[in-house]
Design a protein around this nucleic acid. Structure first.
Length: 777
DNA sequence: GATCGGTATTTTTTT
DNA sequence: AATACCGATC
């Protein structure tokens, strides 16, 4: 095995039996250690199927397999490597006989799950107008992540929302069971229940996995902890790798105590600390260290690097997000002598920030790829087709039935479906498969109150499904999908749509994905029916955005800070480092919240190998209005000698037009300036600076150096500049045309304008979203 | 009773 | 900016 390791890494790789905790700082080569350790186990004669490796993404598992193959010379066939969720799904599939679901279960994503919650709410008569299904779903998810079942939950539910949740929770569980479905959280919960509650299963898998390795352990939640504990009970050879400074999923139930308490939970633990960083330059590391050192609840450590200091970390102040994006793209272009586009990563806190960068990248004709955002498998057309396929595989899946039956339009509306559901629950109260909506649709002619047309359409739909299902034993997944597109007229329905061509392309992409999906070649699952369709469906349900990411593509990468975890780029831009955005909004209210945001910033900084450029802006469009933005408080902690502060010296655009409103006259709508800010934070009338006052103690403004930052020039004519709305003022609305403002009320997001349109009609519009512009002239 | 169009509401991060 | 929900129309 040829792989060079430092002494600490060596110790982790060669550690024999017993629990092992590897505290691996950013860029300290933990992936290297994990793969080397597995390779070494294999070389010492451990059979691959006795090893379980849990990674944070499917991609990471894939990469790991590949590298192990490179080290030991062959594919580690039989090795279990995957995310917690996919490992649990496999377990539940293999042991389906010991559960109340079949192996063809459906995995519900968040939106499926929310629909199911809504139906559960109806069942127990909870007012959907008073309680948001999304909030209840989130509560239930929290409960599941801490392994709190419906009964336990009810006992501790005191506040109103909890009380309602306690009512809906059990109904939701019944709904999932009758649909033969699990939600994301169930995969963990049910696997834990199986392992802890069924001695045979515990023995089987506990005995099987002689070695268990878990990556990114700092982001495990209670359920995942219990899963690991149950599996490691027999052999005790558990190796976890993580870094408490990179724990960024607290909001999703991750419990940082899992890693902090590991030694206590697993007595006899050997601890290995990896503090040598091989990724970043001295300056980058110094900045990152200074940031994270401000956190109070952490294990004290300090990463070192042997790399030279390199270039200083650039912190640049820009006017707004367009200027930020243009500046960033300029910088990328100037770096192209030394780096390729694939070397560049642009990171940000929220997905919506990608837009400005995308516009600028398109304008500069630079190829790029956004990781995340609107997920491929959450696109409407994809979900629609998948709903049909899910229903073929799992006839009990009512969520899929409702989705599929609703599109394309077939003359079956809400009322008919309600009647169908009523008939179903009378026929087979509380039972599983037999009581599915699809089964009811087959007998639609016997359903009372259903119109002839609706009954006919439902029967037709059910018959179509049946004939599709009859293909299953022989046909491949792709054949079934193609036949589905044809038989139900999905393809022609898409063609008829406005942007149907794009949507068809997407569907074809999905089909292409099916072709290349080989499933997991595990002998245990070799005998799968349906040409692997059910495996494919379960597989895609668990794919994440990052799994689609291809580092070889050679284009600029854009992604959220969360998605950037585990990645590295020679050149990293972190955008939007402003108070309210990073740290983000409400999370800044608690100390723990701020610390998690700071860790997130730290994760972003430590992705950089050679060059790190941080930007913040003075104004940003957020949720429909332009908000003044102060630099993030995190930027106060930078070691100035490792930093180069930049500020653009001159203004751009057309000075005559800009700043034409003072925001001081009355009456006015206050939305344009954002609530709560005034004076120094407002855009000033005479261009020249950014409104907020620059504190010289925060850094030097080197005007000669600033010249190197060529000022971005862009045209504001198309952008929605804030303007003053006054009673009696003339405006243009994108759809209704010209009009006169009659009254103004409310402020901030709630600001409303009553407008008398020339074309006739008086309308009250929400200013923030109406897209009003001043009438020219 | 289905469908269409307008209005209200909403944006944190994700398996 | 996009989606969900609601009321009006066909």
């Amino acid at each position: 095995m040829r792989i060079s390791l430092n002494p600490e890494q060596q110790a982790a790789v060669e550690h024999g039996d017993g629990p092992l905790l590897v505290l691996a700082g950013a860029g300290s080569g933990k992936t290297r250690v994990l793969t080397a350790r597995i390779a070494r186990l294999l070389e010492t004669g451990v059979r691959p199927h006795r090893i379980l490796a849990v990674t944070f993404t499917n991609k990471a598992a894939e990469v790991m397999r590949h590298r192990i193959a490179g080290l030991v010379g062959h594919e580690p066939a039989g090795l279990w490597a995957g995310t917690f969720h996919s490992v649990c799904a496999r377990l539940l599939r293999l042991e389906a006989d010991r559960t109340d679901r079949t192996r063809s279960f459906t995995i519900y994503d968040e939106s499926d799950s929310e629909r199911a919650v809504k139906r559960a709410m109806e069942e127990v008569d909870v007012d959907p107008r008073r309680w948001a299904a999304a909030a209840l779903r989130a509560r239930i998810s929290d409960a599941k992540n801490t392994l709190v079942g419906p009964d336990d939950y009810a006992v501790t539910a005191f506040d109103p929302l909890s009380r309602v949740t306690a009512e809906v929770y059990p109904a939701y569980e019944r709904t999932l069971a009758s649909c033969n479905a699990y939600d994301f959280d169930d995969l963990l919960v049910r696997a834990v229940r199986l392992l802890e509650g069924d001695p045979l299963v515990c023995e089987k898998y506990g005995g099987r996995f002689a070695y268990i390795l878990v990556d990114e352990y700092q982001d495990t939640n209670q359920a995942q902890y219990r899963l690991v504990r149950a599996l490691a009970k027999v052999h005790g050879n558990l190796c976890v790798v993580g870094d408490d400074d990179q724990s960024i999923y607290g909001w999703r139930g991750a419990d940082i105590r899992n890693i902090l308490d590991f030694e206590r939970d697993f007595p006899g633990t050997t601890v290995v600390r990896l503090e040598q960083n091989y990724r970043s330059t001295g300056s980058i590391l110094e900045v990152a260290n200074a940031i994270i050192a401000r956190n109070r609840s952490r294990v004290e450590k300090r990463l070192r690097t042997d790399r030279p200091d390199g270039r200083r970390v650039v912190v640049s102040a820009l006017r707004d997000e367009r200027a930020e994006a243009v500046w960033t793209i300029r910088r990328i272009e100037s770096l192209r002598d030394s780096y390729t586009l694939g070397d560049v990563g642009i990171l940000y806190r929220t997905n919506s920030q990608s837009r400005a960068y995308e516009d600028a990248l398109r304008g500069a004709r630079l190829p790029y790829r956004v990781v995340g955002g609107i997920r491929f498998y959450e696109r409407r057309e994809v979900k629609d087709l998948l709903a049909y396929l899910r229903l073929v595989v799992n006839p009990a899946d009512d969520t899929a039935f409702l989705r599929a039956v609703g599109w394309p339009r077939r003359g079956v509306g809400a009322v008919s479906l309600e009647r169908l559901a009523a008939a179903r629950s009378r026929a087979a109260p509380g039972t599983a498969a037999g009581g599915s909506l699809l089964a009811a649709a087959e007998r639609a002619d016997q359903v009372e109150g259903l119109s002839g047309a609706a009954a006919k359409a439902l029967k037709r739909f059910a018959a179509g499904m049946e004939s599709l299902r009859s293909l299953l034993p022989e046909a491949s997944a792709v054949d079934v999908a193609e036949e589905c597109l044809r038989a139900f007229g999905l393809r022609s329905a898409l063609e008829a749509e406005e942007d149907g061509e794009d949507r068809l392309d997407i569907v074809d992409e999905l089909i292409a994905g099916m072709v290349s999906f080989s499933g997991e070649p595990l002998e245990e699952e070799a005998a799968t029916e349906g040409g692997g369709l059910e495996l494919f469906l379960q597989h895609v349900s668990l794919l994440s955005d990052v799994d689609e990411y291809d580092p070889e593509e050679g284009v600029v990468s854009l992604m959220t800070l969360h998605n950037a975890k585990g990645m590295e780029f020679p050149v990293v831009f972190v955008g939007g480092v402003e108070e309210g955005l990073l740290p983000l909004g409400r999370s800044a209210e608690t100390a723990e919240g701020v610390e998690e945001e700071r860790r997130l910033f730290y994760v972003g900084l430590t992705r950089a190998m050679d060059r790190l450029l941080v930007t913040h802006v003075a104004r940003r469009w957020r949720a429909g209005s332009s908000m003044p933005c102060a630099p993030s408080s995190f930027l106060e902690d930078l070691p100035e000698h490792a930093v180069e502060r930049r500020m653009s010296g001159t203004t751009v655009g057309r000075p005559g037009r800009r700043g034409s409103s003072s925001f001081r006259s009355s009456p006015r709508a206050t939305w344009a300036t954002g609530a709560g800010w005034s004076g120094g934070l407002d855009a000033t009338a005479d261009g020249g600076d950014f409104g907020w006052r620059y504190d010289p103690s925060m850094g030097r403004i080197d005007s000669s150096a600033a010249g190197a930052d060529t000022e971005p020039v862009y045209d504001y004519s198309e952008s929605q500049e804030p303007f003053e709305l006054t009673v009696g003022g003339r405006i243009v609305h994108p759809r209704f045309g010209h009009g006169t403002v009659v009254t103004l009320s409310g402020d901030g997001m709630g600001a409303k304008a009553r407008i008398d349109f020339d074309g006739g009609g008086v309308k009250t519009l929400l200013v923030a979203h109406a897209g009003l512009r001043p009438a020219p002239g």
